[in-house]
Amino acid sequence: MLDIFLGCLLIAAAIFNLIAAIGLLRLPDVYTRMHAASKAGTFGSGLMLVTIAIHAGEINIASRALAGVAFFLLTAPISAHLLARAAYVAGIEPWSGTVRDDLKGHYKDKQGHLSSDDD
């Protein structure tokens, strides 16, 4: 019974990874692609580590796998944020279908100093 559940979990995780990769191919610009990579990708690989934690059934291996999951959930948003910021500061144009751009004109220089809405 547990094996069937774990098998389904593993296949679901692999499908999420595949969806992240398809998103990387299909979405129009780097900012939207980042959504696919940082969410679906992290979730897929994290789910695989959770599968290991359940499958092992030993506390030392499970704790290591869950520590790995916590680590990915902490670092994935940080790298996405850094990359999006660097891409915007470097002047990579958003997709032409972007409806609204509140960031426009708020960067003061190439060092990434950012003014807020008030001034």
Binding site: N17, A37, S45
Partner: peptide
């Protein structure tokens, strides 16, 4: 860069 990041994530999986 994003693809390289994604490759690392897939490698972990």
């Amino acid at each position: 860069i994003l693809s390289l990041d994604m490759l690392v994530t897939l490698g972990i999986g």
